[in-house]
Every structure is written in C-alpha cells, then in structure tokens.
Design a protein around this nucleic acid. Structure first.
Lengths: 247, 247
DNA sequence: ACCAATGTTTCGTAGAGTGGAACGGAAGAA
DNA sequence: TTCTTCCGTTCCACTCTACGAAACATTGGT
C-alpha cells in the first residue's frame, strides 16, 4: 500500500535536524540529537554540514545552534512577483479595518495547513498570527473550509489517513463538511485554542479550484457565534472578490 | 591551510540543489543537474528526498520543481519575537517618508551581505529591495560600511579571501575603508547597478559592535553625490537612534 | 576537587549512496 | 504515421561514505 519513494537517509536526517528549529529557540547539540533520535556524532556532522552552507549558525555567546540567513534567502525566492498572497494584502487590510480582527490566509500543504499571509488586528487584545505557521487540518474554521472544498478524492484520503485523529469519525465529519460546503463558510469556537474563535470562507481561483481559505480570527468574547453569523456575508464577499483578483 | 570540517557529501549536495532555487523560476530535473554538476539520477534522488520533507514541490501543470512551503515555515522561525529587524521598521518608515527613497538593512553573513529588512519607496520610480537578497561584500555603499566597521581581523580575512575580486587591491581598498570609518558613512554611485545610488551608515549595538548597515537607495538622478552629502546627517542620525533601540 | 553534562575526534565496518546504463513516455520533426 | 530527441525514472553492482561506539576534551556546577 505504502509507496515508498527512494530517498537518501543522510539528507532526510539533515532535513529533520533543520526542522527541529521550527520550535523557535536556539538548541544545543545534545538536545537536537535527542529530539531527532540520532547519535550525537551523527547530528554533529549533520550540523557541521548545515553550518557550512549557512543554513544554521552558532550563537557566539551561548554556542548554541540557530537558523542561518540562508533560509531567509530561500524564503525570498519562494515569493514570486505574481505571488497571490502579495496581491491580496490590500483586500485583507480592508477587511481587517472593517472588522477590526486579524485576517489570515491558509493553504493546504500535504496533510497540514500553512498560513501564507496575515494582517494583524490593531486592537490591544488580538490574535497574533505569524506567517509560515503550520497547523493541523483537523481543527479550526479554515481547516474545515480547506477540507470541505477540496477535491473529493483528497478529502477521502485525508480523512482516512493515519495522521487523522482517531477521535474524529470520518463519516460524521464528512457530513459536517457537506453542511459547510452548503453554507459557504465555516466557524470555530474555542476549538484549537481556548479563548479564540474564527470564521473562514473559501477563495476560488479562475479555474474553479480552491486556492486558499480566508480567515478572520480573534478573542471569543468579541467573535461570538452571533457576531460571526452577522459578519459572515462580508467575509464570504471579500473571499469572492479575492478569487477574482488572482489568475 | 584550509581547515576542512568533516561534512556529509550527500547533504551538501542536497543543500546545493535547494540553493539552486534562489534563481527564482521553476526548474526541471535536467536543468538542476546541469547547474549543480551532478548526475541526473543523483539529483533525482536528492529531489525526491527534499520533496518528501516538503522543501520542494512539483508544479502540477509543468511538472517542474519549485520551493515548498516548508521553507516559509523555517523562515518564520528565523524571526524571534525580539527580532531587531522587526523593531526597526518604524524608524525605517520614518526615514523613508523623510527622504522618499527605499530603506534597507544589511547584515554581514560570512562573505556576503544579506538584506534582512526593507521598506520600499512610494515613488513611481524607485529601488525595489526584496528582503532576503544576498549581495557581494565588495561593492555598494553598505558593503563598505560592513567592512569598514568590522573587527580588524575579519576585515583582513575578507579582503584577502580568494573570493575577493582580484581587481580590487586590498591595500588601497583598506585605505578607502579607513576614510569611510572617519566620515561615518559611505556612498556608492552606479557601482553595482547602473542608474542606482545609495548612502549607508552603521548601526552599532549596545556592546559597541557593528550590528547592521542602514542604507538609502534610489535612482542616481535623484540620489546625486550632492544630495547624498546633504542627507547624510539625517541617515547617520537615524542609524544612531536605531542602535539605541536594540538590546 | 570532583562529578556531570556537553561538544568533538577517531576509527573499523556495514551498507548506503553513487553513476553508468537502460527503460518508458512525451513532444516534435520529417 | 514513423523516426528522433529529450526528459524523467528505474535498475544494479561497486566503492567509498556515512555511521555509531567509544574515547577524549572542555566546561560548569556543587
């Protein structure tokens, strides 16, 4: 069943080491080797290689490892001049000013969703949404959008994937997704994080395929079920306009 | 003389493949293998590994390779909450509004400089400065700043490095750098790119060490040698304020 | 001074990565 | 159509590379 592509073990391990740094703070050799489950000397060599190419650097003071500027260089190449995420900022800011809450843009990447763009609310209490964050596809308003409007085959694949939480029955969940597809938007209330709520609507490209999920998120005392129901049309409308903007 | 650290060849090659994508556009297997100078089958396996971890993806239509969203995730982890580049945006915008030109922030990374932050001019004709760009340390106003205020040992190392252009004599160049250090700022006029000019001033941290080069760049008809001389104090002052802001 | 923990180096061996070659498919030219 | 060409993919035997155990070095804590 599992179709294993031929990959290179050393490279795979090196990438795992790199991904360790998504945790955020600086890491020591031993800590890294524990997290990735590899021998110290192996990780040492991997890190030396990553350092040689500038992907990691060592903090002069603490001697710990940290991501290097090469990854900034790479991420700069990720954005193409016609990057939709860049074109949509204006519309997102308009929606942010209208609703006063943080606006995010999520796309599906494999079995997760990734926030590819965000404009932050200006209020004192607000949802902070760093671009690049990778979140599970099983919870959150935009997750449901990304699933509900995905092609049926991929939806099935994802719901029956081993990574899908066993606590969520695929059948009942699929029924929820059908309902969301009918409504045209999805909400979540203190689902992934306590105290936070969100509404999300799909952005379709010219080809009619789902491109991203537009999401409004904030504290659950401001984004109540009632207020979300009220602002839903504005969000769906904004998402539709955005769809018209991208090629 | 050359103290080669022990590195892993396969990983080194994989990172080279990754760096190929800094060129920008999507690449096919054969093209990549030519650029990195490796056999097709080798590159194929490397790409399969990179794809498996989400660092590259294949465009569904063209079947070509492109960077994946994992690099966005990584670059998000690069920014720490106390990231100086983030704290300085406000001051950079102020300078931009004052001078009407694009403002950039460069740090030295090994033998290059990297633009870690930028705010774009609002004028119709302007310098566009993507964050993450990697540029040579041998030309440009901010290069001279980064060299002139570097520790003497690293300055020597860089000027006598094999990567240093042979056309630039280290001795005469060092004399220029001394002059720049005395003046407190540097300029460049159509040095790296025809039609472009820039002024740059150093930003020092609390510890008195050079942190970055603040740079104002724009078209050479607006940034004339005279006008640059005129606005130099404003830039030097802004750089000084910024230095006080960072820890 | 001792101990504990971390980073670094060495080294023999297993087996992983390599590249040549051959295969399959798609796109074009004749 | 048929031939040609280019690209991506798979196979396989050989060699050298990456591996991990263990020893060594260094630092910090008590």
């Amino acid at each position: 069943m599992e179709e294993e592509k031929q990959t290179i073990r050393a490279v795979e391990r090196a990438l795992d080491v790199l991904l360790t740094f998504t945790a955020g703070n600086d890491l020591g050799l031993t800590e890294i080797s524990q997290r990735v489950g590899l021998h110290k000397s192996t990780v040492f060599r991997l890190l030396a290689t990553l350092e040689h190419r500038g992907f990691v650097i060592r903090d002069e003071a603490t001697e710990k490892y940290r991501l290097g500027l090469r990854v900034l260089e790479l991420s700069a190449s990720l954005q193409r001049e016609d990057d939709p995420a860049l074109m949509l900022i204006g519309e997102m800011e308009r929606l942010r000013d209208q609703l006063g809450e943080t606006i995010s843009l999520y796309v599906r990447d494999r079995k997760d969703r990734v926030r590819i763009q965000a404009v932050q609310s200006q209020q004192a209490i607000r949802r902070v949404a760093p671009v690049g964050a990778r979140l599970p596809l099983s919870v959150g308003a935009s997750s449901k959008i990304l699933l509900a409007f995905a092609e049926p085959e991929v939806q099935d694949l994802l719901l029956h994937d081993p990574s899908w939480p066993a606590s969520l029955s695929p059948e009942t969940y699929k029924e929820q997704l059908r309902e969301i597809a009918r409504a045209g938007y999805a909400t979540s209330f203190e689902e992934r994080e306590p105290g936070a709520a969100a509404i999300s609507a799909p952005i379709f490209g010219r080809n009619g395929k789902l491109f991203a999920a537009l999401s409004v998120s904030g504290p659950s005392n401001r984004l109540t079920p009632d207020s979300m129901l009220e602002s839903a049309p504005a969000i769906v409308g904004a998402a539709k306009r955005m769809g018209a903007m991208i090629g």
